[in-house]
Amino acid sequence: MSDTIKDATLEYAVRLGDDANVLGHRISEWVSRGPFLEEDIAYANVALDYIGRARMFYGYAAELANDGRTEDDFAYMRDDRQYQNLLLMELPREDFAYSQVRQLFIDIYYGLMLPELVKSKDDTLAAIAAKAIKETRYHLRRSRDWVLRLGDGTEESHRRTQRAVDSLWGYTHEMFEMDDTEQRLADSGIGVDITKLRDEWHRQVSAILAEATLNLPEDGWAVRGGRIGYHTENLGHLLTEMQFVHRSYPGCQW
């Protein structure tokens, strides 16, 4: 592996780790706050899958970096300007409709992205993707059904779900954009050319929203910046909480 490709792969692994870490953290905020006990348990499984995924990606990044850093150094010792997760992941949990709509957008995204990543020439990334695909298929069953139920449930659930779709839509565009690093990796058969997946994502989302009696928002509004560390104000608070104990006792084992 050439040094530039290695550096790019490292950065890519960190980005995917950041996505999983931040989203897993957000979902874990639902614990003991679910609408009923069965859902509390089920949603915790999704959080666990993402925390596990974060550990795998960060673990691989640590292996590539080979400078003594561990998975936790990536998670706990970087500031929000260094985090490179998609903005969608860091938005607050808000109400249950908001969390499920976000989940749907993300699940469809991974449902398309992971099968491509499985074909990666990088064996580790391919192996992580192979494991994650199964998780995502299950997540998608859940989020799809939830959006259908909430969209076509009561007037209130419909209103909340439509509002969630509208407020999240602007953050979905950057999911399908690539910078030079990702382009280089896609060209070398290591990373996924995510731009090619947008149309299919759009088609699947549209179909589910239509079935859920929800409207597809206009495309005009788009917020971007996650991949260059230009975040919403939410991430700083999330990291403050996440990193507090770890950073208060530097160098300790837990």
């Binding site: 874990s28 905020e29 348990i41 915790a44 925390i51 300790c252």
Partner: peptide
């Protein structure tokens, strides 16, 4: 949400989930 390592967070989350 303040667990000091990802491993501990995963363990703690599965424990709380067991309680549910």
């Amino acid at each position: 949400t303040r667990a000091p390592s990802l491993r501990r967070k995963a363990i703690l989350l599965s424990k709380i989930q067991d309680e549910a």
